[in-house]
Amino acid sequence: MEKHLFLAGHTACYGCGEALGARLVVDAAGPNIITTDATGCLEVFSSRWPQSAWAVPFIHSLFENSAAVASGVEAALKAMGRQGEAKVIAQGGDGGTADIGLQCLSGMFERGHDILYVCYDNEAYMNTGVQRSGLTPYDSDTRTSPSGKVSWGNRYLKKDMPAIAAAHGVPYIATASVAYPKDVQSKVKKALSITGPKYVQVHVPCPLGWKSDPALTIKVAKLAVETGLYPIFEMENGVVTKVRKIPRPAKPVTEYLKLQGRFAHLFKKGGGEAEVKKIQQIADENIKKYGLLSEAAEKVAVEKE
């Protein structure tokens, strides 16, 4: 087998985007790192005693303190003159990052710790059985934002974490998707070459929570990008410096939504079209805001990773 730093034998679901994401991140970072992680799927499926899927130093403490524990790790390395020993990577899911862990993350950003924070965004609390988080997309059906006679699912828009990071003056911010593994890895490498706090948010489909085919994890992730619903970009010193262009014309959001049970209610109930329109509008706004559309349609469409 290939030599990895996040190993097989972990107990993630079939087709888990987060397991893939984590492996891509640590493999790109290399062995000289110390990683922290928030409570959540990743921690549960990777470190069930007495086994560990991690070949790098790893610490899990609590749901909401990955960024603070990493701050302590970084401060200790500094205090003991061991900065050269390891780079620090803090990890968390979308709930542990954007909701319960946001305060600790804000502190980490504000103090300027030399830490890369990676958020594996699977858009809900999957570890506890699919409840909505601050990064759950609009109209998504979760156990705490269920669709019903008078509900279309989650009523709120995704929290704009990159903008929150940017407001803290974080020098390097990026979004990425497991649909583009090399992009994830080059962003991790780039982030680690920059001193100070870094934020990388990786879109990682969850076949369980999204009710999607495990075999289609990459396909679904790609559609999120190609529809404009999950813009992939880099921000340096507060300015968007690079955008992953999508083929012109952008794919309609229905193509993405229809592959996932979490949006199935939009296509079953009368009135769903209007909701789909709203989601299309979100995609259109992203496309405009980030200038996602490529100049030449065909060229990008065939670009392979």
Partner: peptide, 14 residues
């Protein structure tokens, strides 16, 4: 925590 002996802290126990 050190890459010299990359131990896992805070594992889940059943």
């Amino acid at each position: 925590l050190t890459p010299k002996n990359p131990i896992t802290f805070g594992a889940m126990m059943g």
